[in-house]
Design a binder for these strands. Sequence first.
DNA 1: TTTATTTTTGAATAGTGGTTCATTATTAAG
DNA 2: CTTAATAATGAACCACTATTCAAAAATAAA
Lengths: 195, 195
Amino acid sequence: MRVKEGNKEKDILEAAIKLFAEVGYHKAKISKIAEMAGVAAGSIYLYFEDKEDILLKIFDEIWHRIYLELLKIKNNSNLSPFDKFDAMIDLIFDIYIENPNLAMVFVNEQNHIQRSTPEKFTVFYEKFLLSGEDIIKEGIEKHAFTNNLDINILRQFIFGAIRSLLQHWAIDPKTYPLNKIRQNIKFIIKYGIEK
Amino acid sequence: MRVKEGNKEKDILEAAIKLFAEVGYHKAKISKIAEMAGVAAGSIYLYFEDKEDILLKIFDEIWHRIYLELLKIKNNSNLSPFDKFDAMIDLIFDIYIENPNLAMVFVNEQNHIQRSTPEKFTVFYEKFLLSGEDIIKEGIEKHAFTNNLDINILRQFIFGAIRSLLQHWAIDPKTYPLNKIRQNIKFIIKYGIEK
DNA sequence: TTTATTTTTGAATAGTGGTTCATTATTAAG
DNA sequence: CTTAATAATGAACCACTATTCAAAAATAAA
């Protein structure tokens, strides 16, 4: 009997993340991913259902990680609502800094995957969103955050804005350092633009 | 000599907007657009360079319109900075309400087009962004808006958040009415979440 | 009508690239 | 060493669809 050597699944995933980040999902060829991963094109189909499945597993990985980290923040009773809020934003930025390619795929292809396979996609994403909601809820209950806002809308607003800025940064990284962007985001969300 | 009858270019554009909105750019077939527009597939290539060019012209149209409207707002000296700000947000929502399909393409395919042909894309988009910036600048100069924020980041933040919410709304329109979303957006950006 | 010119057609083309599968390589067990 | 079972290969397949182009249709001018 033969046993799988090395970690081809991981190699393929990493190659895919890199290529998706560079050229986007649609222009990334399976043959190229295989080449980058050092396997034959056909071998990809031993580890993944099809091309879409690769993207799906990438998203699974990242959302799972984000979710677990957010859970820690949420359950840390030493943090004030605003501390938690800051930590949540830092979390997303940290992941971005740690693995820009992964983050790039994450911001660019979210639409695509949400459209094409909403049912498979939602597992960890939903969990993440709910945890984010909990943090906001706590802030409102403790009278730190305004109660004039709908939680759902607020959640979508915050993550949408962050995603948009990260995307923009990825296209043109030299205009602003990520830390300045992060700091501005925190300020706007907390205090708004009114002087 | 023969003369072009009807307005095939417009028919094709409208069909494309509808189909792109429904199934997305990549899954929209030229043959289907042709069928919906009531022309032969080959005829599309009399009016457009290629498939991408159709999308490009759609974006041209919408950005041009938004830009012209925003210019009116910007130059209306009867409006306070906050009035202008509100009008700017209303403008985007009004276009969305007036032609949801067009708006759908606008929020969904912006990434794609910005990636694939950034140079052709930027004409009206840049103009629009600059006008938006001017409105914010005026607010800061008149001491209505905080001067703690970078204009560029703020601009990206605002439009990113709006886009994200509209996209969300398009997927699931029944959860919230657009007016509630609009009102929440205005509130967050003005006052932030701090109580 | 006839001719010239331009528009429109849609079947044929052509290139792409995801996916399959017969074959080969590799390893473990007997 | 032989056999069995699984892993890996990559050329061939095939479905799909954007694009082309030779022919036909429509219109204006002569």
